Computed example of a mutant assay.
Amino acid sequence: MSKISRNGSNKILSSSVEYHGFVYLAGLTADDLSQDIAGQTTQVLAKIDAQLELHGTDNTRLLQAQIWLKDIRDRDAMNKLWSAWLPEGGAPVRACVEANMADPRHLVEIMVTACK
């Protein structure tokens, strides 16, 4: 039986799960919620980089992304940073939708799947 590696687990979720060379990250949000969409997106992308690095991979190996925005009108500002962060020709499949957030101060949440 193949090993499933869970990290940062509590009763509700794990911050990441690795299985058969695939890395699944939980939805990540910013820590400094006083920031605007650009500031929060920058924080989230840095957290994704750090989590992927822990699993021996990076954003060149992204397969899928799910992005939730508190206000869909922030999509262009978020996409500007997202596009700059992605490697050339490395865009994953993606969904980006407006959603009510668990904490109304969160402006963006991003969840990705990558391979090693």
Rank of each mutant, 00 (worst) to 15 (best):
S5P: 05
S5Q: 12
S5H: 14
R6L: 15
G8Y: 06
N10G: 15
N10V: 09
N10E: 11
I12K: 07
I12A: 06
S14G: 08
S14A: 14
S15L: 13
S15H: 07
S16V: 10
E18P: 06
E18Y: 04
Y19C: 14
G21T: 12
G21C: 11
F22I: 15
F22C: 12
F22H: 12
V23F: 08
V23K: 07
L25I: 09
A26T: 11
G27C: 09
L28T: 04
L28C: 04
T29H: 02
T29F: 00
A30G: 01
A30Q: 00
A30N: 03
D31H: 06
Q35P: 05
I37P: 01
I37T: 04
I37R: 04
A38F: 10
A38Q: 11
G39W: 07
G39N: 03
G39P: 05
Q40E: 02
Q40I: 04
T42D: 14
V44Q: 01
L45V: 10
K47T: 12
K47P: 02
I48V: 14
A50Q: 13
A50I: 09
Q51C: 13
Q51N: 14
L52G: 09
L52E: 11
L54Q: 15
L54I: 10
G56V: 12
T57G: 12
D58H: 11
D58E: 12
T60N: 09
T60K: 12
L62F: 06
L62H: 03
L62E: 08
Q64F: 14
Q66M: 14
I67L: 10
W68K: 02
W68M: 07
L69G: 00
L69S: 00
K70D: 03
D71F: 00
I72C: 00
I72S: 00
I72K: 00
I72T: 00
I72F: 00
R73H: 05
D74E: 02
D74L: 04
R75K: 15
D76V: 13
D76W: 06
D76L: 12
A77Q: 06
A77N: 01
A77H: 03
A77P: 03
K80F: 04
L81Q: 09
W82F: 08
S83R: 08
A84K: 05
A84W: 02
L86R: 01
L86F: 00
L86S: 02
L86D: 01
E88I: 14
G89N: 15
G89Y: 03
A91T: 13
A91V: 07
A91G: 05
P92K: 04
V93L: 11
V93R: 06
V93A: 13
R94P: 03
A95C: 08
A95K: 08
V97W: 01
E98L: 05
A102N: 13
D103S: 13
P104F: 04
P104S: 14
R105G: 06
R105A: 14
L107P: 02
